[in-house]
Nucleic acid binder design. Structure first.
Length: 428
RNA sequence: GUGGGUGUAGCUCAGCUGGUAGAGUCCAGGAUUGUGAUUCCUGUUGUCGCGGGUUCAAACCCCGUCAUCCACCCCA
């Protein structure tokens, strides 16, 4: 509630307004088309899940679980949480319905996620993520396909030149244990070079130190033990194969040995699509392989791999790129003048809708001047204005004005011929 | 949780060393008795975020508070 007693949306949760919603629809449709074209099927899971699900999957000590979840007890005392990401719910759904029993699943989702964080550019408390998850396949062709599919989306949305792909491999369990041990030794031997934050992270999440933005530590990080030197043979083979596929398909990538994902469940190949155009929220898509998660959540051991896209960040990039964003355009605008015509106006709109031409028809319902109505018609982007006044009504005609092709003269059309006339204008 | 910036008309913003608020845009009407550019004229819109303090006087100074943006932490 603000000072005047008007309730407003809660911090970090934003309305998508009419001038922007068309762009959102456009992005969502393009995304769905591509996901579907690669044979992925949509799932829709609840926004609310048992808190346990996220505690067990994302990791108790991660920031997401320890301080960013919207959690509360419901009336029966069970702790529920608004989902902070989509993978855990997807895995839960897959296990619950035995979707991977002797089967491969390729799934996609799109929905709102919730994290209690301080809002800033590209980061909100309610935000949208779309993602794909693949279950039951061990081949690095899976990771590669995910990359190719996302890459295609960037191209479709014309933002590919703003985005760079970074990849890394986290290897298997042993890789991470031995790398972490070496890393701890290394940092402990160089304690004096660590900043305050990093000293804290030494005990919580030493991998994160590699990700620091502090330039004073660049040299230290550069010489730190490289996880890629610790890869087991199979992970190494997989990673090389993965890179081969990317190269064969002309996908540019950068190996970032310091790329660590924030969630506990990742192993082997991980990747992020990053941009420099969005301030400090630079990751617009992140993902990787998580072969252990299904088992952790109580399912049979199932290899899996996926990614999530931050839709708000994609939208920001698009708006950034084109100053004029696409708005919803009217096709036919109906102008009305006179006391007797009102009962006939809706009938005209209805007759156009009845003819299944799939046109956007807007009818002026004010009693404003003709001039004002034409102004509105022009602003709506309509190709045609239909004018119905007392004169026209008495002759059983309507006047048609071509708003986009002003060289064409205005013409009268009999009401009975109207839908045919309009069809010719839009489809011939 | 911690820093910094900003809150004035629906929107974008001006407002000097304190003297009681303005422009553009938008919308409506008219110039054009029923025709969309442009131009011109007219008109509508404000708890100057909120609360307190200083002062004869506060949009402006001081304190507090809320909202928002950006950054840190962390992440999509």
């Amino acid at each position: 509630m603000n000072d005047r007693g008007v309730v407003s949306s809660v911090r970090g949760m934003h309305d998508i307004l009419p001038d922007d919603s068309f762009l959102w629809q456009d992005v969502e449709v393009q995304m769905q088309n591509i996901f579907n074209q690669y044979g992925y099927k949509q799932i829709r899971t609840p926004l609310l899940e048992s808190s346990k699900l996220f505690n067990h999957s994302i990791g108790e000590i991660t920031d997401i679980v320890s301080k960013e979840m919207y959690s509360f007890n419901d009336r029966s005392g069970e702790s529920l949480s608004l989902r902070p990401e989509g993978t855990a719910s997807t895995v839960r759904c897959v296990i619950q319905h035995s979707l991977t029993y002797k089967k491969i699943q390729k799934l996609w989702y799109n929905g709102t996620m919730y994290r209690y964080e301080r809002p800033q550019k590209g980061r909100y408390r309610q935000f949208h993520q779309a993602g794909c998850e693949v279950f039951g396949l061990i081949s690095p062709a899976v990771e590669a396909e995910l990359i190719l599919l996302v890459n295609r989306l960037w191209q479709k949305l014309s933002i590919d030149s703003d985005i760079e792909l970074e990849i890394n491999s986290l290897g298997d369990n042993n890789t991470r244990i031995s790398h972490k041990k070496e890393l701890l030794d290394y940092f402990n031997n160089n304690l004096s070079s660590l900043d305050e934050d990093s000293k804290k992270r030494l005990h919580t999440n030493p991998l994160r130190i590699l990700d620091t933005k502090n330039p004073a530590m660049a040299e230290l990080i550069k010489n730190a033990p490289n996880i890629l030197d610790f890869l087991d043979d199979e992970s190494k083979l997989n990673f090389n194969l993965f890179k081969d596929i990317l190269q064969k398909n002309n996908v540019a990538y950068k190996i970032n040995q310091n790329l660590v994902r924030g969630l506990d469940y990742y192993n082997r190949t991980v990747f992020e699509f990053k941009t420099t155009k969005l301030g400090s929220s630079d990751t617009i898509c992140g993902g990787g392989r998580y072969d252990g998660l299904v088992e952790i959540l109580g399912g049979d051991k199932t290899p899996a791999c996926g990614f999530a896209i931050g839709i708000e960040r994609v939208i920001e990039l698009i708006i950034n790129r084109k100053k004029q964003i696409k708005k919803q355009k009217t096709d036919v605008y109906l102008i009305i003048k006179g006391d007797n015509v009102l009962p006939y106006a809706n009938s005209i709109s209805e007759s156009i809708h009845n003819s299944n031409l799939n046109l956007i028809v807007v009818q002026n319902m004010t009693n404003n001047s003709i001039k004002s109505q034409f102004k509105q018609a022009d602003k709506s982007g309509a190709k045609l204005a239909i004018i119905l006044g007392d004169d026209e009504l008495s002759k059983n005609i309507v006047a048609i004005k071509f708003l986009k092709e002003s060289e064409k003269p205005q013409q009268n059309v009999a009401m009975s011929d109207l839908t045919l006339f309009i069809k010719e204008q839009f489809y011939d």
